[in-house]
């Protein structure tokens, strides 16, 4: 019955773009869920898709069983500082990072599980006043942190026992970096967004700051999610956490902006707005803002303040599916599984639903 009630509502999307409930897991600890992510479990040349859930005081690893059931394999206890974010490491098995802190990230830790002897460990990667962090391909982690007026943008290489000795510093912009995104199709490039709505580009190999490109103040506090290099242009997916539905045009939650890095000029390519108009209101019942989101390839998912999850096709600029608030509560988390067309939607009570997209 519960599964039926959580059947997603389609917003004029083709059938193949729908969300299908695949399985559900629930932490029985009754702790408030703060994040969910996925990880590859690698053993004996095989890869297994696992789910990682976090509450304030612990992080749990879940492995799939037969019949779409999930088994909690291990729980890392993390101590005094609350967990606020899981930081997945793309293309890396048996490792995941977590951010701990209160309002800001104060500490990053590496959680490690050995496939050989089923041992589970955790180690400290970094401490400080950390403003942004992203797991990169190739077992790397990039972060921006502040010490007084000084900003440090640093890449650390991760070993199975924590951070490696070697690291690299990237040239920081004057303004604080709030988010990072790897550039698909360009291995040595990294982009970030700053507090003054600049998109910055780095050369990861040399650490050079190559360009600062202004986005404009119409949509403050833009956050970069993904970037793609194609035909001499840099396409950046930005989200706007303060988007609100508007009668006239509908403020976009996500925008794809094309930048010419040579001239720093930009042009908006596609807007993806909050569900608006009659059908949106019928489904959601009230005007809603955007809380948080996640982007993978051309698909974006976001949790709205109404407690619904909305999925967009960023190339079409259109909502393709909507999960209304569940019978047991509002959605609080929406994440794409690494490397698969699977959406994880979570509620604060620890219920995580996996949908095939």
């Amino acid at each position: 019955d519960v599964a039926e009630q959580w059947t997603p509502v389609l917003l004029d999307g083709p059938t193949e773009e729908s969300l299908q409930l695949v399985s559900k897991l629930k932490d029985s600890s009754n702790s408030c869920a703060v994040d969910v992510s996925t990880m590859w479990w690698e053993a004996g040349g095989c890869r297994e898709f696992c789910v990682v859930t976090a509450c304030e005081s612990s992080v749990s690893l879940w492995k799939p069983l037969a019949s779409d059931r999930w088994h909690k394999v291990y729980t890392w206890q993390v101590g005094e500082i609350p967990v606020i974010q899981i930081i997945p490491l793309p293309d890396t098995g048996n490792l995941v990072c977590i951010a701990l802190g209160d309002l800001e990230i104060a500490e990053i830790r590496l959680l490690f599980c050995s496939s050989e002897n089923d041992s589970f460990k955790q180690s400290l990667v970094k401490t400080g006043t950390i403003k942004a962090v992203l797991g990169l391909k190739g077992r790397r982690l990039v972060s921006s942190s502040r010490t007084g007026q000084e900003q440090q943008v640093e890449i650390v290489w991760l070993s199975e026992t924590g951070r490696s000795k070697d690291g690299q510093t990237l040239m920081p912009p004057e303004e604080t970096v709030l988010a990072f995104a790897e550039v698909e199709g360009m291995r040595d490039a990294l982009v970030g967004t700053t507090t003054v709505n600049d998109v910055v580009v780095w050369n990861l190999r040399t650490g050079q700051l190559l360009k600062k490109m202004h986005v404009g103040y119409s949509y403050p506090a833009s956050i970069c999610h993904r970037a793609y290099s194609d035909s001499g242009l840099l396409f950046v997916v930005l989200s706007h956490p303060h988007a609100k539905e508007s009668e006239s045009c509908g403020n976009p939650v996500f925008r794809v902006i094309a930048f010419n890095p040579r001239t720093a000029r930009s042009a908006a390519v596609v807007f993806s707005s909050l569900p608006a108009g009659h059908s949106g209101r019928q489904v959601l019942g009230k005007i809603h803002g955007y809380l948080e989101g996640d982007v993978q390839d051309a698909s974006a998912a976001a949790v709205l303040t109404s407690g619904a999850v909305v999925v967009w096709d960023l190339l079409l600029g259109r909502c393709t599916a909507l999960l209304p608030p569940g019978p047991t509560g509002h959605w609080a988390l929406a994440r794409w599984a690494t490397g698969s067309a699977c959406l994880l939607a979570g509620q604060r009570d620890g219920t995580i639903c996996l949908y095939r997209y």
């Binding site: 035909s231 094309a258 930048f259 040579r262 000029r265």
Partner: peptide, 23 residues
């Protein structure tokens, strides 16, 4: 997007900017 909006486009922008930017 066209060159009239965005200015001259270079397929090698990353290498060119890396050569021009301070080390």
């Amino acid at each position: 997007c066209s060159e009239s909006d965005l200015g001259p486009i270079s397929l090698n922008w990353f290498e060119e900017l890396s050569a021009e930017a301070p080390p």
